[in-house]
């Protein structure tokens, strides 16, 4: 994680809704978080929780209904953004998609797929320069220059995902939204793709918004994690803090569901189920509170007091153990 906390992207009171009037459906609400330059920020939740919707709204694919998305100090989710700024944002925020089978144009060569962005933005001097850029890119994702003249169907899932990464990275972006980039891949291929993403982060000081549902992978790759449920961020903390001191019952349920690859421990494991009706929010309304520096929870007054007590208890234990 970068030591100087330079905010690259900031979401403020974001709400995203679909439909109008009676049919209005609020998919995401009250979302507040900052992503620092050079870090990997993970957004974890189940299907339907709104994690992909947030990712898409950052790219400007899904319109937002309330709140701000601020990128490099500029609000980017408004119609007033001028064409030049819009173009700039489009280039600097890139996406890697989940399904490598569906996200590549089957009828285009790899050469075209990777250089399409360059062509749209005229980011090369001449044909030779373009070819050089594309060749360098394909080599740095671990494929060969001769692959440029092939078509997507000739590649395996892992190779296709590398092509997807190359296509995003050739634009020299600052932020990459990676939407479940490895869930469609085999275990051994997963490792290759994750290592590749890490390599680029080290080399280019890239920032990732990593959208995932698998906490075991997220723990390995991310600096901070936000847990989202039903369009609401329920907990946000640094990775180790979240794993050692999970506070919100939903986070705990999610952690308990992660399979443990150890037969003895797996047999003893207790599965927790989140009961949304356990909260009493009728009079005492919840908000996103910082219960410990950097550790945020969605809680009402009563719960906040309780979480404070829990953290104190934990702290006491820790001191005793040392």
């Amino acid at each position: 994680m970068s030591s100087n906390k330079d905010v690259l992207l900031s979401l403020k009171d974001l709400e995203i809704s679909f439909g109008e009037g009676k049919n209005k459906f609020v998919a995401v609400k009250d979302v507040n978080f900052d992503i620092y330059r050079g870090e990997t920020f993970a957004l974890v939740g189940e299907s339907g929780s709104g994690k992909t919707t947030i990712g898409r709204s950052i790219l400007g694919i899904t319109p937002t209904s309330k709140g701000d998305i601020v990128f490099n100090g500029k609000k980017i989710n408004s119609n007033k953004l001028n064409a030049e700024d819009r173009k700039e944002v489009t280039r600097k925020i890139q996406m890697i998609f989940q399904d490598p089978q569906a996200s590549l144009n089957e009828r285009a060569t790899i050469d075209y797929i990777i250089s399409e962005g360059l062509i749209n933005f005229h980011l090369f001097k001449n044909e030779k320069d373009r070819l050089e850029k594309v060749t360098n890119m394909i080599e740095s994702v671990g494929l060969l220059p001769e692959h440029l003249y092939r078509y997507p169907h000739e590649f395996s899932g892992g190779q296709r995902q590398r092509i997807g990464i190359a296509r995003a990275l050739i634009m020299e972006p600052e932020l990459i939204v990676a939407d479940e980039p490895i869930s469609a891949l085999d275990v051994s291929i997963r490792a290759q793709v994750l290592n590749l993403l890490k390599k680029f982060q080290r080399e280019d000081n890239l920032t990732y918004l990593f959208i995932a549902h698998d906490l075991s992978v997220v723990r390995f790759i991310s600096d901070r994690i936000a847990v989202i449920h039903n369009g609401q961020i329920l907990e946000l903390a640094e990775t180790e803090e979240l794993f050692t001191n999970p506070l919100h019952p939903y986070t705990k349920a999610l952690l308990s569901a992660v399979p443990i690859p150890d037969p003895e421990l797996a047999r003893q494991k207790k599965l927790l189920v989140y009961d949304i009706n356990a909260h009493h929010y009728e009079t005492d309304k919840p908000k996103f509170v910082e219960v410990k520096p950097g550790h945020f929870v969605w809680a009402n007054g009563e719960e906040e007091a309780y979480y404070h007590a829990v953290l104190q208890e934990m702290h006491k234990k820790e001191v005793e153990n040392n």
């Binding site: 050692t244 001191n245 705990k252 443990i260 421990l265 207790k270 599965l271 927790l272 009961d275 356990a278």
Partner: peptide, 22 residues
């Protein structure tokens, strides 16, 4: 894994019945 779980043992901390154990 035992060590990793010890680190996480806080998870089992009795939480006033807000998560249901099945």
């Amino acid at each position: 894994f035992l060590e990793m779980q010890d680190q996480q043992s806080t998870m089992d901390f009795e939480m006033g019945g807000d998560a249901v154990v099945i």
